[in-house]
Simulated assay, not measured.
Amino acid sequence: MKWARAQKADGTEITGVIVDEMLHPKASLGSETGTGEAVALSDLTLLAPVVPSKFIGLWNNFKAAAEKGGMEHPAHPLYFCKTDTSLSGPGAEVTLPTSAGRVVFEGELGIVIGKTCKNITPDQANDFIFGYTCINDFTSLDVLNADPSFPQWTRAKSFDGFGVAGPVIETDVDWRALTIKVLVNDRERQSYPADDMILSPEQIVSCLSQDMTLNPGDLIACGTSIGARPVKAGMAVDVVIEGIGNVGVTMVAPAA
């Protein structure tokens, strides 16, 4: 089942289930209660599928990247948080601020939390995972490493629009069978299997729930693998995960 959040022509936002190119509005994410007539997707603008209270991203969570970088496998997620204003959705224009310097794309699988969880086990985690989405976790490499005394993870990853999510949340998918791809101007630039993860989604959610309460709609990016590359203004960057969808944005230069 595919869930989406969208905007009508009058500015009204709706959340619901996609069936036969129609969005069927629901009272809330995961609700079975309908709230109006179905609307054709062609009459809507898709948004990021959730507005999370927390947008968490992982570092060093893929075996191939860890091997290439000479890094040990972590026993607990190595993570950072992106600000709420970094969130953007399908079709957005993402500005590359002058202060950001070199910026790279990072195609990732995203976990969406379905209900409040705290101190859960990996075996319990699937009951709290609502579904999966596509993520592009843009990162300013120059900002991240600008100060040798303090890697600036939050600043490097939290420029406006640097957290792309969408186009939908798929609730019926086996994450182990997925491949995460990134296309730049329609050319494949990144491709890696989700099952190369060091910590599985179930382990990630369990571990994070030991550190903090996870709320419905919270978004967790599972980390990226090898292949992340710099982007420039004018580039179209799409994250494609067959079985979930394609979330694309256009990189733009800052206004004069």
Rank of each mutant, 00 (worst) to 15 (best):
V94P: 08
N60W: 03
E106G: 15
G91D: 09
M71V: 06
D127Q: 13
Y79S: 11
G70F: 14
A64C: 12
L87P: 11
A125S: 04
G69I: 00
H73T: 14
E93D: 11
L96Y: 02
V104Y: 07
D84N: 08
I113Q: 02
R102W: 01
H73P: 15
C81D: 01
Y79F: 14
L109N: 12
H73I: 11
A65F: 08
C117A: 10
G91F: 02
V103S: 01
H73S: 14
F80K: 07
N119W: 00
G107V: 07
N60D: 09
A64I: 13
T83P: 00
G101E: 02
L96H: 00
L96S: 05
L87V: 13
W59I: 04
P97A: 00
L78W: 10
I113K: 03
Y79N: 12
K63S: 12
G114F: 14
E108G: 14
P77Q: 05
T95Y: 00
N119S: 10
T121Y: 09
A65I: 05
G69K: 07
F80H: 07
K118D: 02
W59K: 04
E72H: 09
R102N: 10
E108N: 15
L78N: 03
N119G: 04
N61A: 08
E67M: 12
D127N: 15
T95K: 00
W59T: 03
F105H: 15
S88T: 15
S86E: 03
I111H: 05
V104A: 01
G89W: 09
G110Y: 11
E108A: 15
M71Y: 03
P122C: 03
K82M: 04
G110L: 14
A100I: 01
S86Q: 04
